[in-house]
Amino acid sequence: MLEGILIGIFGNSIFAIIQGMITAFFGDKDDDLNDRIYESLELATKDFFKQYGEIYRKPHSSFLARESNIRLIVQSVYFGRNIDMLEELDKRGFDNEPDVSQEHLHYFVSSLEKLMREDFILDKLLEEKTHIHESKLANENIKEILEVVTGQSNNTTPEKKSNWQLTDLATGEEIPFREGKKYHQKYSNGVEQIFMIKGDIVSVDFKDEHGRWSYHEIDIKKGSANNNKFPYPVSDYKLVVNELDIINKTVTPLSNGYYQEEMTLKWGRTSKVIYDNKNRIQQFDVSGGWSVNHNSKTISPYNK
């Protein structure tokens, strides 16, 4: 695919950097993916110097000759973090070569992204990364909603409800809070959230990117989650706790082989779980910060 391009503006040096990074990401060599990224980068680079070669006369001394920039560009394809290349690329040149301007950098980044989107495999990777990032934002937004309405943020004293403001994620505009009103927000990757605040109860209905709905009611004063409805039977889930975090644990026998287990953990977390005679969860009540993973079907303390 790359015959005639490998010996390009920077020779084989960039190709070697990309190859090393892909091996680091995936644990083995992926020549096809390596070629696709390299071809997009090489074509975008050639286009850049064709457009601005009279200003940046020495490619080997330009900002694109920096290995850190090449590594950042390759990282932008993968899922680790969301990279803003316009902000994070090092604009400096070498050997008195001029720093790239924001306008010219924008031209390069736009050209590179366009070329990557035209490649089926790279486009699929970038789209999946976008979905993962949007799902993360959706979950973070739910957490922020709960922090605001429960007063469990950096503010020691929660504001009065009359002063609460929420953000419309579609427009970015602030919208007034109204008690008892349902707020419904949707994301392009299929994630949805419906939440309502009434009295001391925050109700959240959430659909993840796999189409699974879960529902929770959070008590503002107690900080506890009640009336939980998971996408799978609660008996399929396991409570996962680090034994070193347990301060107290009490087990109380019930009828028919059922039993109740109560725990107090470090950092103000508590749990009360009822198990059947096969050690399957039948009912639970937790407070102080917990998370649920529907993929592994586990309930565990939330690491703040």
Score class of each variant (00 low, 15 high):
K221C: 06
V204S: 05
L265M: 08
L125I: 08
N34T: 15
F284A: 10
A170T: 13
Q102P: 02
E144S: 15
R66G: 06
S291K: 15
V148I: 15
S40H: 04
D95P: 02
L2K: 11
N69I: 08
E262A: 12
V74N: 04
M263G: 11
N227Q: 13
R178Y: 01
S235K: 12
Q165I: 14
K186C: 13
Y78Q: 09
Q193E: 13
G93E: 02
I17L: 08
G288P: 13
E87K: 15
L169E: 05
S40W: 06
K221R: 13
H131G: 11
Y258M: 09
K297N: 05
E113C: 05
Y232Q: 09
T264I: 15
V273K: 02
E87G: 07
N242M: 08
L64W: 05
R71V: 02
I247N: 06
Y56R: 13
L126E: 09
Y52A: 10
N141T: 10
G180S: 00
M196P: 00
D99K: 09
F108P: 10
W164C: 02
K222M: 14
L72C: 11
V234K: 04
I55V: 13
G151D: 06
G27W: 06
T45W: 11
I246L: 05
K50T: 09
I121K: 07
D90G: 03
G80S: 13
G211R: 03
N256S: 14
I37T: 00
F94E: 08
G151K: 03
A44Q: 01
I37S: 02
H106G: 07
A170R: 08
Q165C: 08
T150S: 14
D47E: 02
D47A: 09
R280M: 14
L254V: 07
S13R: 14
T270Q: 05
L244F: 11
Y275L: 03
L265F: 07
K160C: 08
L64F: 12
E179H: 00
I299T: 04
V240G: 05
G20E: 08
I70M: 09
P231R: 04
L64P: 01
G80T: 11
G53I: 06
N295V: 10
E113P: 01
K222R: 15
I145S: 03
Y237D: 03
G257D: 09
M21A: 00
S76C: 03
I7F: 12
H60C: 07
V251D: 02
I246D: 07
L6S: 07
E209G: 04
P233Q: 04
I14M: 09
G8Q: 05
D30W: 11
S153V: 12
L72N: 04
S214C: 11
D47W: 04
L122V: 08
E39V: 10
I197H: 00
P59V: 06
P233H: 05
Q193C: 13
K50F: 12
K182Q: 10
L64M: 11
H133I: 12
A44Y: 00
S188G: 08
D236K: 09
M263L: 15
I145C: 02
E174G: 03
Y302I: 10
R280C: 14
N303M: 08
L146Y: 14
Q51N: 03
Y38K: 02
Y183D: 00
V202A: 15
Q193V: 15
